[in-house]
Nucleic acid binder design. Structure first.
Lengths: 140, 140
DNA sequence: ATATAAAGTTAAGTCTGCTTAACTAAAAAG
DNA sequence: CTTTTTAGTTAAGCAGACTTAACTTTATAT
């Protein structure tokens, strides 16, 4: 498990470097991939940096046309951040590249083994989902 | 799976920040935790940076007494890098903190579910090990 | 209506990581 | 025994991320 993460980190760094993005920049793109419609404040909170820092990072990504920043209609102070089409395709590439390894791993398994792994993943996903909603409730 | 990594990354960044370490520095400590007796060249290769950069990072960690750098008896040009006791306890703390989340997740499972997950992990570990040795052979 | 708080931006300055280039010392090759 | 490679260090300089502080604009509270 930790091994997978070790590997994944490396892939991530590699991909970021290949695309000319810094790790923080890449991180923001991933964040927007998973949770779109973010505000700048969500970014700063997620990465534990100041609003100013987040704003500057976001601005760079906007300038490279990877994300778009528009006014939130319900609160005109806030901004809604989203991936542009360019950003989406980039991230999609990155994800595929990172998952090539997983596919290779899957090929090493027999059908029976793969079924077992699938089941375990489903179980874990359920548990994780349950945990997340609980912590959400606790924070709110 | 990706979700776990997302979470893990956050924990990692948080812990690194709390200890006053930068991510690259923390990464080196982790590397030494998993594969001790590294040379400076191993570090630079792992993180895809120059020897100079690795040497400088290593030096900072040596100065903060987290790792030790001694001459390799079998090749006096090379250095053997290892965690000091101080470094070891630090990393141990970090690992425990990161795994608290996994433990919480495990608590959400029934005994039967946990058994299934355990089995799946064993399968995956085997496959990963097989893959690693194969890629080693390919590189060599 | 005024005061206060909140979201974001901008600018100035600091700190790190990283690279290239020049160097030392040890090992391997000829 | 010289020559060349290899491992690592050091210094100079650049680029990026980050922080604080000052500011603008919108929302909220009194």
């Amino acid at each position: 498990m930790d091994f997978a993460m070790h590997h994944s980190m490396r892939e991530r760094a590699h991909f970021a470097k290949a695309t000319g993005l810094s790790m923080p920049q890449f991180g923001i793109l991933m964040q927007l991939h998973y949770r779109g419609n973010c505000a700048v404040g969500d970014i700063s909170e997620r990465f534990d940096i100041t609003n100013a820092a987040a704003s500057q990072l976001v601005d760079k990504l906007v300038q490279s046309r990877l994300i778009q920043r528009e006014e939130d209609p319900s609160d005109r102070r806030a901004k809604l951040l989203n991936l542009t089409d360019k950003g989406k395709t980039l991230i999609q590439q990155g994800i595929e590249e990172r998952y090539r390894w997983v596919d290779q791993l899957a090929e090493k398994l027999t059908a029976k083994e793969r079924a077992k792994v699938d089941e375990a993943i489903t179980i874990l996903m359920e548990a994780a989902k349950k945990m997340e909603t609980e912590s959400m409730a606790a924070t709110a």
